[in-house]
């Protein structure tokens, strides 16, 4: 156990945690905006998994991480459109839709991957490199953790205040929130609730798929079934535990990311405790976090309630 607490390992855990956090944070911010618009999107895990597979295919075909990320986001848009069609247009129960979509995504990605690979070994590529920020990355301790990371990690963290600003200060942000709090009011002003809900879903799903692409390109050199491993679900928990606020959501994401990183390091170190117990940590912690944080004051009033005119 003490090996985990040595300064070198601790640093290594925190550095890796920032990468894992990027994946969950992108999905959580997307889900946050979606939920603020009133859509309880439970399809995050499936959307992330789809993003992973599309990024993998594109990366193998083109070798360009940028094109791979863009392709994953396009797939995310398609996922958001499908979920939006079912929840907004058909008004199928939001939970049922999300569960159905996850099952669809897990089946489709498995089939597509298997028929792509056939009997041979799946192709692999080299994972993308980091982009240290000059000067700042030389600061002891903080430098390597915060300023020697991937570009997308910086972007994800910077987008936290931007999302906060968008939801609080911009017209579109306020209208998006109105769709989740008081859709009748929005409709009475002659503004379409469904347009804003579609918009939020498309944005959220694209961001989630981008998270999946990052997971694929930065952490693995080839796809494997269920590679997202519950990180989409952790994003949903982070939004609830963060009481639907961007900064608090990011804090919850960091908790999961550190535990995830601890699990990976514990496996390599040969600690006395079986590694499976470390692997359980993020999932067990997510339940504990929801038990401890009782407050749901930030939950949008009409979250998950299909909107009917009149």
């Amino acid at each position: 156990m003490s090996e985990l607490l040595s300064p070198d390992i601790l640093m290594s855990i925190l550095i890796a945690a920032m990468g894992v956090a990027t994946v969950i944070l992108l999905a959580a911010l997307g889900e946050l905006v979606t939920e603020r618009a009133g859509i309880w999107n439970m399809g995050v895990e499936g959307t992330m998994l789809t993003g992973c597979l599309i990024a993998y295919f594109t990366m193998v075909a083109t070798g360009s991480p940028v094109i791979a990320a863009l392709a994953a986001m396009a797939a995310g848009l398609a996922a958001g459109l499908l979920i939006g069609f079912m929840t907004v247009a058909l008004r199928v129960d939001h939970f049922v839709t999300g569960l159905g979509f996850n099952l669809l995504a897990s089946g489709l990605t498995l089939f597509w991957f298997r028929s792509y690979v056939g009997g041979s070994k799946p192709p692999s590529y080299s994972t993308i490199g980091k982009t240290p920020i000059p000067v700042l990355s030389d600061i002891p301790v903080i430098g390597p953790i915060l300023f020697d990371q991937h570009l997308l990690t910086y972007a994800a963290i910077l987008s936290v205040p931007f999302i906060g600003y968008f939801l609080r200060r911009t017209t579109l942000g306020l209208e998006t929130r109105a769709a989740g709090e008081n859709p009748q009011f929005l409709e009475a002003k002659g503004l379409s609730v469904s347009t804003r809900q579609y918009g939020a879903l498309l944005f959220g799903s694209a961001l989630t798929a981008l998270g999946g692409a990052f997971l694929m390109l930065a952490f693995a050199d080839q796809f494997r079934p269920d590679i997202s491993g519950g990180r989409g679900w952790l994003a949903i928990v982070a939004v609830i535990a963060g009481n639907w606020r961007p900064v608090r959501t990011m804090i919850a994401v960091m908790v999961f990311a550190v535990l995830d990183s601890v699990a990976v390091h514990a496996q390599g170190l040969g600690v006395d405790i079986p590694y499976q117990f470390f692997l359980m940590l993020p999932y067990a912690a997510s339940i504990l976090l929801l038990v401890m944080i009782g407050s749901r004051s930030g939950q949008p009033a009409k979250l998950g309630v299909p909107f009917l005119k009149h």
Partner: peptide
Amino acid sequence: VPAMQGILLL
């Protein structure tokens, strides 16, 4: 089959 199941469900 899992793919078909998901498709049929949706």
